[in-house]
Write a protein that binds this DNA or RNA. Structure first.
Lengths: 196, 196, 196, 196
DNA sequence: TATGAATGAGACTTCATTCAT
DNA sequence: TATGAATGAAGTCTCATTCAT
């Protein structure tokens, strides 16, 4: 193998690789701090956890919303992608909806403070809201439509509203042993059934 | 009432009356500011609204939780007292529960930021949590028990959990036209029904 | 003498007196720091010089422009008031103008950085600009008009422009022994004479 | 000079040519950014405009003053060289001085922020001051001397002081339609005339 | 030599809470 | 008892400058 022509390439690549590794470090640090202190933790704390200067955080993630989105992007994506799969998996649409919502809840309840920030009307979290909603509302809509079409559930519930409701129910879970968001969300989903 | 003969007494009495009037002023001011800026509004704003110094607020209400509790005590009490009345009113227990929860939701959705603070795990809101829970959980428990006893709903839901869930669903309502806490709470309550 | 009714009064008075003394302390500290480090010195430095917390500066002077105006108000006022007096004093209008401008220069050259900030187009110094211009431009205008009416000077120079020019000439004087703003301003005023 | 036979030389020569081209790119980029954002624009912006890294700027121009000097060297030189020519051109020395000063003003008023930085007593602008003064003060001195010798103007004005004054009058021009540096400088130069 | 990621000092501003008057 | 001035910790964000690659 001839590495002559690769030197420049490897040099450029290594910078990029370093930067990428660093991003990864940042994301892990942020995730750690988010768990410990919530997603509104001081930038300085996140920088300290990552062992970098604060400027590095700002370079990679100009706003806090950018950082939060980056930290959770993979999980949100995975959740979004699970929707169609569940729908195709053979259970009833309502059951698929329930399982999909469970995935979302599983995600949220382990993210200290995320659910709270998701409903913040604070400008500057616009990006964050958008990402979650753009990604998840359509999936929720599909599941809802399918369940409504099958006659299992009422047809007057909007996916946006349902997602918000589920998100809200997840707020504060984890810090309170007497409160189980999963159970309540289960009730909410059960409440969607065609009244009769 | 004749306070003529009581030197110290009359002085103390009138002072007490003043103090009470003052408290009332404070509570009204706080309520006004809470509506305008949420229950986490700066102390200074509340003092300004009341036309008193900040020290006066602190004298009467050492912690913010004390102030919030005082502001909403009457409404919480009224809500608590409505429970037995609804139960006795002739509808099914589940319907009574639904109506009672509606009262609670009506209360919460008009109190900007209260629902959010109710779930805050921030130490210092201990008093606040306690008051709400001490007052409302037993009532909720009665209604829940009655509905469970009548076989209308499942019997494995704790009143504490339900109250927390309802409170959570109320977070952020009012600031978002696409989100109607009442409707979601309705679904949650519907979900309590004995499955099938 | 009955001091019963004065207690509250004297108490209120003393608070006001304290606050006023404090303001005075602040203004003196600011003046000192302005001389040492210019009018853009960090708020923290001014607070330290005054021996107060930073918040105290902000309480009294919400913006830097407010502080600067307050520091120099008396001197600007005195300068403004000197204009009509000089005009009435018997010398020719052009001589009066020259003397008045000298007063302004005497003021500016002892205020490290003030002249520089006076020409800053930085929004936020709006208040500062306004104060100086509102106060001084009309006076300058009177003197200019009188001198023009007497035929001593050309009549095509606007007071605003002249004040700005004089202000600019004062920039940096004091820090440079080879530069004497007074002399240059003298040339500028001389240059106003009717050509020929 | 013949550098043909020098092996290293030719390599060095081409490298030198590259470096020179690079320098040129840098200077043009800096000039562009200086016009857009003033001579105190962030180094990062200049690097971005040039399409190079910030380190490259620092390599070529260790201090900002070096960069500013390099950017304006040609124009300053041209201005300096115009002095003797104007003096020889036949007009009176005072008229030549006026025209030369106009050239300097034309240069300054089109350089956003340069006049301001020229009077900054900030150490680190030493180089900048020196260059301008070394280059222009002697020329100004010649013109001044000639005009003084001809009896047109007073003989007690130092060229250093005059240059500084003219520079100061140029501060902030361009950002204020009511302020015309050229007019004020005209008055200043007029003021040099032999009083009579 | 060039790059640009990283650093971190430095400035601003807000507000809960204390305490002298 | 009431007042509100004072405090200062906390958090944000920006850029000049350095240095590993």
């Amino acid at each position: 193998m001839n590495d002559g022509g690769q030197r420049a390439g490897s040099s450029a690549g290594s910078r990029r690789k370093d930067a990428r590794r660093n991003q990864q470090t940042l994301l892990e640090a942020a995730a750690t701090v988010f768990v410990r202190s919530g997603v509104e933790a001081p930038v300085r704390d996140i920088a300290a956890e990552a062992g970098v200067g604060m400027g590095t955080i700002y370079r990679h993630f100009p706003t806090r919303a950018d950082l939060i989105v980056a930290v959770y992007r993979h999980q949100v994506d995975a959740c979004a992608e699970a929707g169609p799969a569940l729908l195709a998996a053979g259970a009833t649409p309502h059951a698929a909806l329930g399982r999909w919502i469970d995935l979302f809840v599983d995600f949220l309840v382990t993210k200290h403070g995320l659910a709270a920030v998701l409903q913040s009307d604070n400008a500057g979290f616009e990006t964050l809201h958008s990402y979650f909603l753009d990604r998840l509302v359509p999936v929720c809509g599909e599941l809802l439509d399918a369940a409504a079409a099958s006659g299992e559930i009422r047809s007057d519930v909007e996916p946006y509203e349902l997602m918000r409701g589920v998100g809200n129910l997840c707020i504060g879970s984890g810090s309170d042993a007497r409160y189980d968001a999963r159970r309540l969300v289960g009730l909410l989903i059960a409440g969607l059934r065609q009244p009769r």
